[in-house]
Design a protein around this nucleic acid. Structure first.
Lengths: 110, 110
DNA sequence: ATAACTATGTAGTAAAACTATCTAGTTGGA
DNA sequence: TCCAACTAGATAGTTTTACTACATAGTTAT
């Protein structure tokens, strides 16, 4: 069982949560995710997700020049994105309870 | 954002956790999952997953007759399945910490 | 006999994600 | 001044994954 499969479902919510803390560009976001334990996330995973989230209307982007390399595309969360984040938060809370309950019962039997 | 995407990653682990409590057949497992909040799980989702878990060697199956309908295929967790469950448990614990940390920081900013 | 429930399975499609690769600017060293 | 390493973003094409819709079949109650 790969860790990736577990991460998939929460990645979108985590990206919204991080952008909710202030504007951030993709490359920086990848590093932030790595620091938060999502060490397997690479550009090929994140950039398509960011494009999808912008299409959905959860994020907006602004391109700004950089002194350290090519232009950066900064992402900002929209009011709709904040609503999506709230929904994710609630679903995550419920999922945690359900999974923990099931795992606890299994532990009692081992 | 659909709840389904979140559930996907944990479903496999939850199935292993439930089978760890004792032998159970697919139809019964679907009902057990429904009672545990996984209300979207249907046969077309679970049966292929059970077949995959058996192929992997995490589960074994025995067909037994039923008085209430067609034969039932009972699933039993293997020692390998228990190891897989342990791994899932650890990954789940880590994921919870990471996600909760990110969500908490976002909450502080809203 | 027929509807509802029990029980499992799969073909075909749809969606999602990763790998590999590309473009391109900057920095520092040899 | 050339190359490697780092920064920054994107995507074509393949692989993986999951769901929808349907099929099969036994039992129960009307």
């Amino acid at each position: 069982m790969k860790q990736t499969q577990l991460i998939k479902g929460v990645l979108e919510g985590c990206v919204l949560a991080i952008t909710a803390q202030g504007e951030i560009y993709g490359y920086e976001l990848i590093q932030a995710l790595h620091q938060n334990g999502f060490t397997t996330i690479v550009g090929g995973t994140l950039y398509p997700l960011l494009i999808k989230l912008e299409k959905n209307g959860d994020l907006q982007s602004i391109v700004k020049p950089s002194a350290d390399g090519p232009d950066r595309k900064y992402y900002v969360i929209t009011t709709q994105g904040i609503r999506t984040l709230h929904t994710f938060n609630q679903q995550w809370f419920q999922l945690k309870n359900h999974v923990d309950k099931i795992l606890k019962k299994a532990d009692d039997n081992l």
